[in-house]
Simulated scan of single mutants.
Amino acid sequence: MTQKLVAGLEPPYYTALFTSIRPDAPEGYAETASRMQEIVKEIPGFLGYEAARTPGGIGITVAYFRDLESLDAWRLDTEHQAAKTYGREHWYDSYSVHIGKVERSYSFERE
């Protein structure tokens, strides 16, 4: 889980919202998640992400991308595609992906 929020960004940009239900700590998940974080950070146009998971297994990850080309680069990455296939077969009970264009953004942080 992330401990710091992505601050307000200059719009427009895009989000990939991934919500899922899976058991806590399935075998191999943490290693794969760590590798996916490494890969996505190398994509030009990737702006950051936030993630949270409840003890009951509901997870939400929001990734931010400057444009659709950078989001597509992530979607089409071969390691990411392999992880998605493995996740459907072994980890997730269900998931949804929502892609959105952000037109307004702001943030607050207590000093």
Score class of each variant (00 low, 15 high):
Glu31Val: 07
Trp91Glu: 10
Glu109Thr: 03
Tyr106Arg: 02
Ser94Tyr: 02
Tyr64Gln: 14
Phe18Pro: 08
Val97Met: 14
Leu71Ile: 09
Glu69Ser: 09
Thr61Val: 13
Gly100Leu: 14
Ser34His: 13
Ser34Leu: 12
Gly56Asn: 00
Gly100Cys: 14
Ala83Leu: 00
Gly45Met: 03
Gly45Asn: 11
Gly48Val: 06
Tyr64Glu: 13
Ala16Pro: 01
Gln37Ile: 04
Glu27Met: 13
Ala52Cys: 12
Pro23Asp: 15
Glu89Thr: 03
Ala51Arg: 10
Glu69Trp: 01
His80Cys: 04
His90Gly: 00
Ser105Thr: 01
Glu79Ile: 00
Gly59Thr: 08
Ala25Ser: 07
Ala16Asn: 14
Thr19Trp: 02
Thr61Phe: 01
Glu27Leu: 09
Thr78Met: 00
Ser105Pro: 13
Gly59Lys: 04
Thr2Arg: 02
Pro55Val: 02
Arg22His: 06
Met1Ser: 07
Gln37Cys: 03
Tyr14Phe: 15
Ile99Trp: 05
Ile21Glu: 12
Tyr13Ile: 08
Ser105Ala: 07
Ala7Asn: 11
Leu5Ala: 10
Thr19Tyr: 01
Ala51Lys: 03
Arg35Trp: 04
Trp74Tyr: 12
Ile21Ser: 10
Glu38Thr: 12
Asp67Pro: 07
Arg88Ile: 10
Phe65Tyr: 15
Arg53Ala: 02
Ile99Lys: 10
Gly8Tyr: 08
Ser105Arg: 07
Ile21Ala: 04
Arg110Thr: 04
Val6Gly: 05
Tyr86Asp: 01
Val6Asp: 03
Leu9Asp: 06
Tyr14Met: 05
Ala83His: 00
Ala73Glu: 08
Tyr86Met: 04
Arg88Cys: 01
Lys101Asn: 13
Ser20Arg: 01
Pro44Gly: 03
Met1His: 13
Ile39Pro: 08
Lys101Met: 15
Glu89Ser: 05
Met36Pro: 12
Pro23Ala: 12
Pro23Arg: 12
Ala30Arg: 14
Arg66Glu: 15
Thr78Asn: 03
Leu71Cys: 09
Ala63Gly: 15
Gly57Asp: 10
Lys101Gly: 11
Tyr13Lys: 09
Tyr106His: 03
Tyr86Arg: 12
Tyr13Pro: 05
Ala83Ser: 09
Leu76Phe: 02
Trp74Ala: 09
Gly87Asn: 01
Pro55Gln: 06
Glu10Ser: 15
Arg88Gln: 04
Gly57Gln: 06
His98Met: 15
Thr2Leu: 01
Ala7Glu: 14
Ala51Trp: 09
Tyr29Met: 03
Glu111Ser: 09
Ser105Met: 08
Ala82Tyr: 04
Gly48Lys: 06
Met36Cys: 09
Arg66His: 10
Ala7Phe: 04
Leu9Phe: 10
Ser34Thr: 13
Tyr13Ser: 07
Asp72Phe: 08
Glu42Trp: 00
Gly8Ser: 10
Gln3Leu: 11
Glu10Leu: 14
Ala73Ile: 05
